[in-house]
């Protein structure tokens, strides 16, 4: 077994220190070591986007990052966006527009869209489609997701 590495990072605003193997993926670290199972793993090769998290505010595939690479960085997962009783407007919009079905890919869409909407408060449908083009969804055909993003933009502007 390889040597352990002392990892310290911030996840959803809380500081964590853990000893991890260098080969441990960030996705597995979040899910298994921290119990943050909202980040889903759909392909382990960076295509489907389900495992997307915010790495220092930028969307990143947590299945393509080793946990040790997050040393000293800030990570935001879907659990840090809102709670059942206090949903983020983006989450509310997904709810209202039926932007999810099985919900497995949803956390990755939400984390992809959060910075997108902050930078593009009034995006066109085409811009939205491009923004989510790196996230695969097998259930919705994307249309209600696009509707949800438009609705979210509206909510977030006001």
């Amino acid at each position: 077994m390889s040597d352990l590495f002392n990892l310290s990072l911030t996840v959803n605003g809380a500081a964590y220190e853990r000893q991890v193997e260098p080969r441990l993926l960030l996705s597995d670290f979040l899910r298994q070591n921290l119990g943050l199972t909202g980040t889903h793993v759909g392909c382990e090769h960076g295509v489907c986007g389900a495992c997307t998290i915010l790495f220092d505010g930028e969307p990143a595939r947590s299945c393509l990052i080793f946990a040790v690479q997050a040393h000293g960085h800030e990570v935001l997962t879907v659990e840090g966006m809102g709670t059942i009783d206090n949903l983020h407007p983006l989450q509310e919009a997904f709810w209202e527009a039926h932007g999810l079905q099985c919900g497995f890919c949803t956390p990755g869409f939400l984390t992809t869209l959060l910075p997108f909407l902050e930078e593009n408060p009034d995006p066109s449908e085409e811009e939205i489609r491009e923004a989510i083009s790196g996230n695969l969804c097998r259930c919705t055909g994307y249309q209600h997701i696009v509707d949800a993003v438009k609705l979210a933009a509206e909510k977030m502007r006001t």
């Binding site: 899910r31 298994q32 119990g35 943050l36 199972t37 909202g38 980040t39 889903h40 793993v41 997962t77 879907v78 659990e79 966006m81 809102g82 709670t83 059942i84 949903l87 989450q91 997904f94 709810w95 209202e96 039926h98 999810l100 919900g103 497995f104 949803t106 956390p107 939400l110």
Partner: peptide
């Protein structure tokens, strides 16, 4: 009608098989 199951799914609080520990 919007879905009863969504708040859990939207916040990472829905149990999928891989979440069982």
């Amino acid at each position: 009608i919007k879905r009863n199951e969504d708040p859990r799914l939207l916040t990472g609080q829905a149990l999928f098989v891989d979440d069982v520990d």
